[in-house]
Design a protein around this nucleic acid. Structure first.
Lengths: 336, 336
DNA sequence: GTTTTTGCTCAAATCGCTTTGCTTGGCAGT
DNA sequence: ACTGCCAAGCAAAGCGATTTGAGCAAAAAC
């Protein structure tokens, strides 16, 4: 059905080697033949099979991207950034949603390996570091994005989560808050841990402490968890005047809880999110949040994995980008 | 580096044919040898190369998905649904964002073709139908999702856009609105056109007409366009009391415009969206919208393309699913 | 006029796997 | 003991490319 290199060669009256050389611009081919071959390829609508080429040692021009859930706007944005850059290099992207389950990560990893992808970008947390051993052993390039893997020698592109936590705390502190709580993702998500650490330290520097019972973690359905945990916080006798949420989804849950309980944001409660997804611009009040440079992160991760050194990475194996505080309407000074 | 079928064969003291047969559960192999071979495969960490297998005529176990923009929550949800079903069948998914540009569609289509994907799901509008000719000619299975291609013999899974438009109109009419406007996507997006047609006809049945100057189309940045066009509508002397937006992003723009102009939603203006994305649950007031069954759509599209007849499609080449009105807080009776 | 060099081409091997007969040895039937 | 079968295993031929080295004619060097 589809034309092969043999068809082209026959039609042009040359050997397949000649055709191959024209395709790859290698070897010596007289201008005359090159033109003829090109012409035939055009006429037959011939496109070389990436599959066959890959078998002889060339690339597959495909990268894999693992994220917890592509329908989560933050990861959708990351995916878009990665895709754009990948496409720019002539590659395509296989996207895998892991739901943060190691078992799925493992399955996808071997699947991608069997498909001989040229590299894998991991944007999902991994508990069991052993999962990476097999693909590292086969020397498939791996980069992590938006999530780190402490203590492993893997290239990483992240935002400075610790600093992001600090920014959030400093903003709230500067507004005069003295009683703050935190909503986190599942405890195993390292980025959440770092954000909390930064938040806590900035508080400490201000002479405040973050009580353990003011830190709540969630599970899978972030918005729902955020809402439930925020409601719980609001029922404490001494309730916090501000909540730092480790991502925008949790913050939205908090906003919903507040509305349901008739608590006014930001007058009675300040809420600050993380990620600066499209969701943050859409809520009412619009969400103050910590922005991650998703576009740069995606681009860098791709450049690193393709070693194109687009912005000279490689100097360090861990690239840490600066987060940015985006002030909107969900934060204000606490009631006196 | 990676173990091949030859390594396994040598190690197990059999021919590669035997190994292949064990892998595929074909041919005659004594239980004894099968066990031995399995054992060696395990020990060597051998995983057959999909690439090599594909070259011999087997599948690549990869599907392509074209969407306008994976960072648009609606398409991210579609993608997730598709991915889940695809994964269920042991396939993986290459995602391509086309930005609604035919030129990119074409590029991606030939790319996917070169990679010998087993099928392509198209969720992006296509202006030039000729674009599909080459891949149809190579008999690569193609299905459209969430968007139709009028007059082409292509399997399609969509929501009933016309009916969705009617539902919106009926809801607004039943609330007592008599002056309604419409915010649409780019005029070339067929689904928008159908929604407007349904909306208009339902109005007509109620003895009302939709003036042309109350229909505004946008371009690429949906939220911004929605906002701009909504503001414009609000400045008319006789401004509408309700706006039907062809998707949630546009509706959000309308909401923002209203807020900026100090117009209260839903008291002074009702806004109704389309898609029921996560965004609709997050706005304030929460958005009344028309829901699409993204999960079923994604699943069906995959089943059709894989011809697994999961829910017996095939009877008709066009599967049309029912939309559903989701009433939230952005619509109400108009002021008297 | 012979020998080298240069410039093109192509035959053939390879990549890792599937698949199709063909062998072969063991066993039942007569 | 001879024929016929069956089961189990294998050799070999692809699949569609890339790549290397050999071949060969024309041009350059001697």
């Amino acid at each position: 059905m589809k034309a092969t290199i043999y068809d082209v060669a026959r039609e042009a009256g040359v050997s397949i080697a000649a055709v191959s050389q024209v395709i790859n611009g290698k070897g010596k081919i007289s201008e005359e033949r090159r033109a003829k071959i090109m012409d035939v390829m055009e006429r037959l609508g011939y496109k070389p099979s990436v599959i066959a080429a890959a078998l002889t040692g060339k690339k597959t021009y495909t990268l894999g991207l693992l994220v917890p859930d592509i329908s989560n706007p933050f990861f959708a944005e990351i995916a878009r950034a990665v895709e754009d850059r990948v496409d720019h290099h002539g590659y395509s992207l296989v996207i895998c949603s892991t739901d943060n389950q190691d078992e799925r990560v493992e399955r996808y990893l071997t699947l991608l390996q069997q498909k001989s992808v040229d590299g894998i970008i991991i944007g999902t947390g991994i508990e069991d570091k052993e999962l990476l051993a097999p693909i590292l052993a086969k020397s498939i390039p791996v980069t992590m994005i938006a999530r780190g893997l402490p203590g492993e020698a893997i290239q990483t592109v992240t935002v400075d989560d610790y600093e992001g936590g600090r920014l959030a705390a400093q903003h709230l502190l500067s507004l005069g808050h003295t009683s703050m709580a935190v909503l986190a993702e599942h405890p195993k998500v390292t980025s959440s841990q770092e954000r909390i650490r930064g938040f806590r330290e900035a508080m400490a520097e201000s002479g405040q402490t973050l009580p353990e019972y003011f830190v709540k973690s969630g599970g899978r359905d972030l918005i729902k968890d955020g809402k439930r945990n925020a409601s719980e916080l609001m029922r404490y006798a001494e309730r916090p005047t501000a909540i730092f949420c480790c991502n925008d989804l949790l913050a939205i849950g908090a906003l919903q809880a507040a509305r349901e309980l008739g608590i006014s944001v930001p007058r009675e409660l300040s809420v600050i999110g993380f990620d600066n997804t499209i969701l943050a611009t859409v809520t009412n009040p619009a969400l103050t949040t910590i922005a991650q440079p998703t576009e740069r992160m995606g681009g860098l991760a791709v450049d690193i994995i393709l070693q194109k050194n687009g912005e000279q990475p490689d100097e360090s194996s861990r690239t840490v980008l600066a987060p940015e505080l985006i002030v909107r309407q969900s934060t204000a000074a606490p009631l006196r």
